[in-house]
Amino acid sequence: MNNSTDQQLQEFLDAQQRNEQAQLPTTFNQEDVATYKRLFEELTHEPPDTYLSFSFSNKVTRQIQRQTMDRSERNAFLIYGMSVLFMIFVAGFVLINAPGATFEKSISRLALPVVLLLFGLGFIQWADYRLLKRSRRQKF
């Protein structure tokens, strides 16, 4: 079968399949018509092994929720960290500029709280990253 006849036959079957008005001329080789009809019919069926797990949509939404939670946690930690640094800065500024205060005296008064604060922050960070398990591809 030459190309143009082949194309005409495909166009006729296309039109038939999409419920358009089309009459199949009898000039076509009937074996070709039958083969193309089988092909067109089979192409409308799903290929084998085409499936998703039963809870696919649930899995996707859970992953989105987890990502959203991760993002808000990160933002919360960032704001927390910035606030603590700002607090330290303000406290230092007040102590250094207090009437009668010297630099050394202020540092010695600040040292212990700052060490404790940094230790506390460090502990929170460690607990967050070592004790909480996060996995992008967590199985359900």
Partner: peptide, 17 residues
């Protein structure tokens, strides 16, 4: 997010194919 689950259910066959 629940609305997104509806969208996934509606279009998962298209994406899968």
């Amino acid at each position: 997010v629940r609305a997104y689950q509806t969208l996934v259910e509606r279009y998962q066959r298209l994406v899968l194919h």
